[in-house]
Design a protein around this nucleic acid. Structure first.
Length: 399
DNA sequence: AGGTATTCACATGAAACTATTCTCTGAGTTAGG
DNA sequence: TAACTCAGAGAATAGTTTCATGTGAATACCTGT
């Protein structure tokens, strides 16, 4: 495009062209459809467990397992929504609080969970400054004001326990004994199936009263889910033959993750629009996959603290010989620190940071023993060269 | 040859420390009656 | 005397440091054949 006329033309064209995506909302992560396909069984099961709440009786504690993107959260929110609505029309005293424990700043410690729960009940609790049991008391007091059933949904509870220990669960399961009027039930949602194994047995028995397992979707189910959404989200005939199948297949490869399938479809649609393509084609799915991966990595990197970025930079600069060890990276890292005017952290910490980067999937680090020559992490990077150089540039900028 | 014992280079754990942010409390101060 | 200000005590949290202990297997070192 040269000059203003050209640009004006461009905008005109853009406006005249019919968009491929006509309702983006349906493809977004938090959208909950009216009908949840292939989850009828689980929904009925959970609903039957919770139904005593409508008669002001305490439902069992429920535990829900399943890999990411298999509809756990969506189902629970769906059920809870209907349950609350029914309770309202029938005059039952029911209150539900949904809490996602993954969110870093919201609820990944005992204090924050309790504070958030108390807020859910309508008490203002400061972000810091109070003793934890004070918050417990506040929560108990509000809950116990009147006879009611309170259902607490703790999503991604495994993360919470990993960070903050299982004391919270113990306290929450015992909370009923300090309540006179109200009753509290717990719904735990976990991605990790083996989560229960290393938990205080006292908690285990009371929390795991009922368990529901969400199996992954298979490719066919995923395709049906996508079909349903695509019909609303895209203009008619916007999808080329085989696009849905492809998206479903890609997502099915990764433990049947519907969230991922939808993201793929959405990004593919956006890519296709940008390409001025008539339809969304299978190749757009490939591009979408790349783009999603790139965004993911870039997001993670920029949200990382400086020291961690330095470590990553050190790794990328050392990586010429394909794989390296903790010691090497640490040396390089110290160099970089001096260069950047930062005081270097201990090797102990660097070891942890490398572990974190590994968990985030940006690098691969595996502990190996080299016998006589010690034990260390073998670190390597498996990112396309193109992305790699982009990351390097980005790190240069940030540091 | 076969079997132990060493040894390396970190990994992994636990505890303690630091800095920051925030509440609460009570002493001291101020202004108005 | 009521209202206000302000410093200090306590808490929670993230990010580290310090100290201590663990560890897998390639070598070094025996041993008896």
């Amino acid at each position: 495009m040269s000059g203003q006329l050209g640009l004006g033309d461009f905008f005109q064209k853009y406006l005249q062209k019919e968009p491929l995506i006509i309702n983006k909302k349906v493809l977004q992560e938090h959208y909950i459809p009216d009908v949840l396909l292939h989850r009828q069984q689980q929904i009925e099961l959970i609903a039957s467990m919770l139904v005593p709440a409508l008669r002001n009786e305490k439902p069992s504690n429920v535990f829900v397992y399943g890999k990411p993107g298999v509809g756990k959260t969506a189902c629970i929110q769906y059920i809870i929504g209907h349950l609350e609505a029914t309770a309202k029309t029938n005059g039952a005293n029911l209150k539900t609080i949904y809490l996602n424990c993954k969110l870093r700043t919201v609820a990944n410690t005992e204090y924050r969970v309790m504070a958030e729960l108390a807020r859910g009940m309508g008490v203002e609790v400061p972000a810091t400054g109070l003793p934890t049991d004070e918050v417990y008391n506040k929560f108990i007091t509000v809950v116990d004001q009147k006879p009611q059933v309170v259902i607490l949904v703790l999503d991604e509870i495994d993360r919470l326990i990993a960070k903050a220990g299982d004391e919270i669960l113990y306290n929450l399961t015992r909370i009923n004994s300090s309540l006179k009027n109200a009753q509290v039930s717990l719904i735990g949602i976990s991605n990790d199936v083996r989560f229960m194994e290393n938990i205080d047995p006292r908690v285990k028995s009371s929390l795991g009263e009922e368990e529901v397992i969400f199996p992954p979707y298979n490719a066919i189910e995923l395709k049906e889910i996508l079909e349903r959404r695509a019909a609303v989200a895209f203009r008619p005939n916007a999808l080329a033959e085989g696009v849905l199948e492809k998206a479903a297949a890609v997502a099915a490869r990764e433990h049947g993750d519907a969230r991922r399938a939808l993201a793929l479809l959405k990004v593919a649609g956006e890519v296709a629009e940008r390409d001025n393509s008539e339809k969304v084609k299978a190749e757009h799915i490939d591009k979408a996959e790349e783009s999603i991966e790139k965004d993911r990595v870039m997001d993670i990197i920029s949200s990382q603290p400086k020291q961690s970025q330095l470590v990553l930079h050190a790794i990328l600069l050392t990586t010429t010989g394909r794989k390296m060890e903790t010691g090497e990276v640490f040396e390089k890292y110290k160099d970089l620190c001096i260069h950047a005017g930062q005081s270097p952290l201990t090797q102990r910490r660097i070891s942890d940071l490398i572990g974190e980067l590994d968990m985030l999937g940006i690098i691969n680090a595996k502990v190996i023993s080299k016998g006589r020559y010690g034990r260390t992490r073998e670190i390597y990077v498996s990112i396309s060269d193109e992305l790699l150089s982009k990351i390097k540039v980005k790190l240069q900028e940030e540091l």
